[in-house]
Structure formats: structure tokens, C-alpha cells
Amino acid sequence: MKIAWLGLGNMGSVMAARALAAGHELVLYNRTRKKAEGLLERGARFAETPGGAVTGAELVVTMLADDAALRDVLEAGGALDAMAPDSVHVSMSTISPALAQELAARHAARRVGFVGAPVFGRPDAAAAGKLFVLTGGDPAAVSRAQPLFEALAQKVLSLGPAPEAAHLTKVLGNFMLLSSVKALAEALDVAHSSGLAPQALLEALTGSVFSAPFYAGYGKLLVEQNFDRPAAFTVGLAKKDLDLAVSAARRVDAPLPTAMTVLDKLEELLGAGSAQQDVTAIGRFTKP
């Protein structure tokens, strides 16, 4: 399948590599060509503009940082105008449900399919093909993207025919993830300050009522207290995602008070210049 891939950040580059290894033909676009070099060595091609990448593609995958970046490649970059009728745009970025709803209508007017397909999982899960893909869109369009999903995901979960439903689920899931990281960090901090080894607490929790792999994975990072490692999910992106969840809640007058506590901590870290640190930096222990 001929796929235009727009966006080669921490997640996008790993996902594109999986698609390429599965035998798909990839034409890449990224603001900086350097991030594409490894994929080019394996047979992908590079386009100098988003519109150039999209021309002739069956699927167009966007994996970009935020709403503004997506609008930029679609509008100023010419990608939307260059999409062929009956092609399908697979929106895998974490974007606002409102933008997904708007784009669904704009694509339909051009006879282009639009599928919301954000993912749950960090880069290591992407590399192993173990992501969870959330889909929203016309069933025929979702079916067109299924070969791609098979290369990327351990499970595909349908949220129905509305692309914005998939993106709403993603931002609410990230709200829950970030809130859980903060709660776990606070518990580990109390243990550390009390003289109980944080690792012992983590093992007790994950060996009983908190056995989900999420707690073990993030708990290990929190216990290590190494916030200078390469970030899989940065403080800056976490703040953006939580803002999207709060915005979605406000649109329907349903408050997210827990989110505000986490936002306060993220804003504190941003003010300290920690935008590129891993989000587990919200769990720095109070005492050395």
C-alpha cells in the first residue's frame, strides 16, 4: 500500500519503521529531513512538501505534535488539496475532538475518507507492534487502513463512525494516565520520606491490586528518579494533551477538577525549563 507519512517525531518515526518493515511503500515528510535518514536507507522516499508527499497516496498518515502542526501541513503545506478522491487520511496524532470533527466534514466535501486513529503506547510498544489503536470513522475507510493497523497494533478498538469519538477517547485516556502517574508519584514520595523503600512499595502495589503493566512501567521510571533520560512522553506534550481534555470537558460543561492539580504541576515544570523532560518528572521526590 502506498502511504504518505507526515511527522517523524519520537512516535511517528518508530511507527513509520514498522509500516515500512511490513512491506508498505512510504513517502515521508518531516520539517527536518535528518529524522528521515534511517528510513530512507531502508527504502522510503522523502518529499520536500506535505502536498508532494500526499500526491498519489492511498493512505495519508499524520503523526504530528498538535492541532497547529496538523493545520499547517493540511493547509499551508497543501496536503489536503493534494489528497486524491477516495484516498483515506488516518489521523494518528493526539488532537482536539473539535478539530477532528471539523476535518471530517472538510474531507467529506472532497470525497476523501477521514479516520481518527490515535494510539495508546510509548515508543517501545510502537517498536514491538504492541500499540492500542482507537478508531473512529466510516467502516469502509477504517477497513482501508486495517493493513496498516495490523503492522502497528496488538489491538484495534472501534469507537464508532465519528472520528472525534476516537480523539475524545484518546485525550480522556491521557487525562487518566497523567492523573494516575501523579497519584503513584505522590504515594512513592510519601514512602521515600517515611523510610520505606519506594521499590518495596511499588512491588507490593503491582503485585496486588495495581497489577496493570502501566503501573509497573511508570513506577519503575519514578523509582529510578532519572529525569534526564531521553523522554518518551515529554512534559510539554503532556501539558498539551491535558489542555485538550480540559477543553473538551468545558465544551460540555463537565468539569475535570483532578486535571487542574496535574496541570499545576506541569506548569511548574514548564516554568523551570523542563518542557523536554519525561513526564515522570512530575514525581520528583520531595526529599533527597
Rank of each mutant, 00 (worst) to 15 (best):
L6Q: 02
N10Q: 12
M11I: 05
S13Q: 12
A22Q: 03
H24T: 14
Y29R: 07
Y29A: 10
Y29T: 02
R31H: 13
R31T: 14
T32E: 02
R33Y: 14
E37H: 10
R42S: 14
R42V: 08
F46I: 07
F46K: 07
A47E: 03
E48F: 06
E48C: 06
T49R: 15
G51H: 06
G52W: 07
A53H: 04
T55N: 10
E58C: 14
A68G: 06
A68C: 08
A69D: 06
L70Q: 07
R71E: 13
V73T: 10
L74V: 09
E75P: 01
E75F: 14
G78V: 11
A82V: 15
V88R: 02
S91K: 06
M92G: 05
M92Y: 03
S93P: 12
T94A: 04
L99A: 13
A100D: 04
L103V: 15
L103C: 11
A104H: 07
H107A: 14
H107P: 02
R110H: 09
R110Q: 05
V112T: 10
V112W: 01
G113A: 13
G113K: 04
F114R: 03
A117G: 11
P118C: 13
V119I: 09
V119Q: 03
G121I: 12
D124N: 12
D124H: 07
A126Q: 08
A126I: 10
G129C: 10
F132W: 08
F132N: 05
L134S: 04
G136D: 01
G137S: 07
D138W: 12
A140P: 03
A140Y: 03
A141C: 13
A141M: 11
V156R: 02
S158A: 13
G160A: 13
P161H: 15
A162T: 07
A166S: 05
L168D: 01
L172C: 06
N174K: 04
S179W: 00
A183Q: 02
L184T: 00
A185K: 01
E186T: 08
A187H: 05
H192R: 13
H192A: 14
S193H: 06
L196N: 04
L196I: 14
Q199D: 03
A200G: 10
A200P: 01
E203K: 09
S208R: 05
S208I: 04
V209L: 15
F210L: 15
A212S: 08
F214S: 00
F214K: 02
Y215V: 06
Y218M: 09
L222Y: 05
V223T: 03
E224S: 14
D228K: 08
R229I: 14
P230Y: 10
A231R: 00
A231H: 04
F233W: 03
F233T: 00
G236P: 01
A238G: 07
A238H: 00
K240E: 05
L242Q: 00
D243T: 06
A245H: 00
S247I: 12
A248H: 02
A248Q: 01
R250D: 11
A254S: 15
V262T: 07
L263T: 01
E267Q: 13
G271A: 07
G271K: 03
A272G: 04
S274V: 02
Q277M: 14
A281G: 07
A281L: 06
R284I: 08
F285A: 08
